[in-house]
Amino acid sequence: MIEIKDVRKSFSTLEVLKGINLTVSKGEVVTIIGGSGSGKSTLLTCINGLEPINAGQITIDGTVVHAKDTDLNKLRRKVGIVFQQWNAFPHLTVLENVMLAPRKVLGLAKEKAEEIAVKQLTHVGLAEKLNVYPNRMSGGQQQRMAIARALAMSPEYMLFDEVTSALDPMLVGEVLDTLKMLAEEGMTMICVTHEMAFARDVSDRVAFFHHGVMAEIGTPDQLFGAPQHPDTQAFLASAR
């Protein structure tokens, strides 16, 4: 379970998160929608401790993320994250990209890491690309590789930060299908996205962020069907 309690976060004088409260249970899929600069991506990088927070608390299965004695490297093994820019490691083949962390972080033997990597890459439809370098692949393929790379660590939670925003429109579908598949398999996920149809389809709950505040949260039917907050209504009207 991920518990976010009254989290505040500023970049110098700009407060981007103004007291966020959110609890995500095991197996739940929560998507976060909202305009640019609403703080939704920042929240994700705070959850896995890549960014410090100014106030409040985030706990993952009882571990306080920003406590001084928390081993973030260990915590991150169970919280995978995939970014808008997939950040493929260009000097490694697709297979090596996915094997690297299981070998070096989890300390698995080469054969075992390779087995896991092949399995995950097959899962995201890249079984044909094992020995290719990332720059020989499309953005959608690289993004799916990045998802496999995160999954190879056997995370319990996955964070997706606008993973289709940097893709050509034609390639968005293949990545969303991959996310949908994960959701159906029961992965606990928090997805920041601009894809409204996707949010409506896969989410257990959808949250709307506006200027650093979670203005509204509810089931897809509630939020898309009968939004309560005027800002949600305005956002959804413009998004359609």
Partner: peptide, 15 residues
């Protein structure tokens, strides 16, 4: 972002 991607996979800064 390259080092950041590594960190997010649980690597230490040195790794």
């Amino acid at each position: 972002t390259q080092a950041r991607a590594g960190r997010s996979l649980g690597m230490t800064p040195i790794q």
